[in-house]
Amino acid sequence: MSGEIPDDIREFIRRYISSVSLLEVLLLMKRDSTKAWRAEDISSEMRTNVSYASSQLAELAAAKLIVNNGEGYEFPAHSKQMDILNRLEELYANRRSSVIGFIYSQPIDSIRDFANAFKIKKD
């Protein structure tokens, strides 16, 4: 599954994308990068509650993938991540299940690694 995803896109997902909905918000904002998005806008587009949309915007802003211009959040037109995002968007459109599987495999691996650190081995 992850072999279908190029290394740089896998690294981008590992670093910045914790859920499919977060990826979809980022791609939505990228597609309409001239708009200043508010949590209410994201909530309406994604059919989710406003507080969840607000937390997603905050997470993307903390990762410096979007910026707050005072009136809302914008996707920077000259993002240094544009090449990866364009390819990720195409991959998500064509191999959605592979991308979704990879996104959701990440937290499980992290939790497993954390749990393994506390295993007590028998002598």
Rank of each mutant, 00 (worst) to 15 (best):
P6A: 08
P6T: 02
D8A: 13
D8K: 14
I9S: 04
I9Q: 00
E11V: 07
R15A: 05
R15S: 15
R15C: 14
Y16N: 07
I17A: 09
S18M: 02
V20Y: 05
V20G: 00
V20I: 01
L26G: 04
L27R: 12
L27G: 04
L28H: 03
M29V: 06
M29G: 07
T34D: 09
T34I: 03
K35C: 05
W37P: 09
R38Q: 03
E40S: 13
D41T: 01
I42F: 02
S43A: 15
S43Y: 09
E45P: 00
M46F: 03
R47P: 01
R47W: 03
R47V: 08
R47H: 11
T48D: 06
N49I: 15
V50I: 14
S51E: 04
S51W: 04
S51L: 07
Y52S: 13
A53W: 03
S55T: 02
L57T: 00
L57F: 01
A58I: 01
A58P: 09
A58Q: 03
A58R: 03
A58T: 01
A58S: 09
E59I: 04
L60F: 04
A62N: 07
L65P: 14
L65C: 11
L65S: 10
I66Y: 04
I66M: 12
V67C: 09
N69E: 14
G70F: 05
G70Q: 07
E71D: 15
G72W: 00
Y73E: 11
E74V: 12
E74F: 09
F75S: 05
F75T: 06
F75V: 13
F75H: 08
F75G: 10
F75E: 10
P76S: 09
P76W: 11
H78N: 15
S79Y: 12
Q81Y: 14
Q81I: 07
M82G: 08
M82T: 13
M82D: 13
M82H: 06
D83I: 12
I84G: 00
L85T: 12
E89L: 13
E89N: 13
E90N: 15
Y92G: 08
A93C: 12
A93Y: 06
A93H: 10
N94D: 13
S97H: 12
S97E: 09
S98K: 09
S98Y: 11
V99M: 05
V99H: 06
G101F: 04
G101S: 03
G101L: 06
G101E: 10
G101R: 07
Y104I: 05
Q106C: 12
D109H: 01
D109C: 02
S110E: 15
I111R: 06
F114T: 04
F114K: 01
A115K: 11
N116Y: 12
N116W: 04
A117S: 15
F118Q: 14
F118S: 11
K119G: 08
K119W: 00
D123R: 06
